[in-house]
Design a protein around this nucleic acid. Structure first.
Lengths: 233, 233
DNA sequence: TTACTACGAATTGTCGACAATCTTAAAGAA
DNA sequence: TTCTTTAAGATTGTCGACAATTCGTAGTAA
């Protein structure tokens, strides 16, 4: 029984393992977006029965990575520009809330630890100059800590088990390693300061802006890729 | 193949039917909150195999009505005061967003139809004087229409398939038929006016307030019931 | 050629049985 | 007595097979 990195999923059963594996493959694009999922084929590939695979598919559906139709089957979700907007609208509202709650509920040592993490990121960033570390794992870590700091279990579940896998999927598959690294760092700093001052209103506002900027960044990348794709035809 | 009233669930398979039936029983309290669910027992009761039942349980889990632990089993969610607060914090953020979006995206005829519905509610209310109709179905209908008016599919799914069943569970089991009926009507009117004027900011604010009031109302009932329960011991 | 129908292959939904795990209760040791 | 250990019982997880439905194809008629 191990624990998964990207959500607090305890891996105890075979279907847990298949769920986590498939999730990784979908997020990273090994299993192509929009592609149909054949139950018999994948069951054989993961070495489990169809019942076990279907259990995993059910859970992938609840985090919006696949879509099912009765008697038809399962498809990996398709990353469209429209859906990106929808997801980020929801994310902004929820993570804004998380930030406001965190300003009230985060323990002082949690805040200190988060500030320390930011400093550490700054060091790493200076050395590696635009290395993808910060943008990927570091940014995720920052957001997760604030989400947890809200102490709202329902909200935490909704974001970390629900939305974030889909958001990661966009980021990974769009290849987000842009020039937003240093800007994002400053924004993170401002947010944590607001939280430290228990200024929930400001923290919420800053987080919403931060997320809007992130959305704009991904959207630009999306349009760029779409244009390249069109030119290649 | 029929359609379910409380979410756009198309009932095609046996597990669909079990899912909808169980959901109703849990929301209404026929299946007691906090109680353990025995797979063999319920499978027999619904006349399906365990596989089919488990499929339904998976979906009940994704709308937060049951909780599962690996190798241990399934429990109906317990309605606590803490959870009520958490859920309403999330609801307020999401439905506030829905309202803001609806102010931009709702079609004029949808707005008119909603105003008409409100008038109809007013008539009914005058006749039946505090009858539970408005509080239950009418209020739900109002909120659902605005949620749909946001045109954000992800948000719509999150609210109608996710949160609202849990919210209904609180309302039904707390026996919400209070004196908020007329007040709620006025609040609804103000909200739809803001939407009609495309004033998203105001609409969001009003909706958040409306939901806060609703939360306070349920919370009061919750405390009352808790006090009665304590006195009875 | 085009549209419709009917058939067959493949896929999904459902079932009953077996294996792995947890829970309960009894038995034994400190 | 109280705590630990162990074994039986029950419950969940997993499997392979069968039934129901869908999708593609070939064939027929207009």
């Amino acid at each position: 029984m191990t624990q998964d990195a990207f959500s607090e999923t305890l891996i105890t059963t075979a279907s847990d393992q298949v769920f986590v594996d498939m999730r990784r493959e979908i997020v990273e694009g090994s299993i192509e977006q929009g592609s149909k999922i054949s139950e018999p084929e994948l069951a054989k590939r993961y070495g489990v029965s169809r019942a076990t695979l279907r259990e995993a598919l059910n859970r992938l559906e609840s985090c919006y990575l696949v879509e099912r139709k009765a008697n038809v089957g399962c498809r990996v979700v398709a990353l469209t520009a429209e859906r990106l907007i929808e997801v980020y609208q929801v994310r902004s509202a929820l993570e804004g809330l998380a930030c406001r709650l965190a300003a009230d509920n985060m323990a002082p040592d949690e805040v200190q630890s988060l500030k320390q993490l930011l400093n550490q990121h700054l060091q790493t960033q200076r050395v590696k100059e635009g290395e993808s570390y910060y943008q990927e794992a570091g940014d995720l870590d920052f957001h997760f800590r604030i989400i947890k700091g809200s102490k709202n279990e329902h909200l935490i579940h909704l974001l970390s088990n629900g939305l974030y896998q889909l958001i990661r999927m966009y980021r990974v598959q769009m290849g987000m390693v842009g020039p937003r690294v240093s800007k994002a760092f400053d924004e993170h700093l401002a947010i944590i300061n607001a939280i430290e001052n228990h200024d929930g209103e400001l923290a919420e506002l800053l987080m919403k802006r931060h997320i809007s900027a992130s959305q704009a960044n991904i959207q630009a990348k999306f349009d760029l890729l779409a244009a390249q794709k069109k030119a290649a035809q």
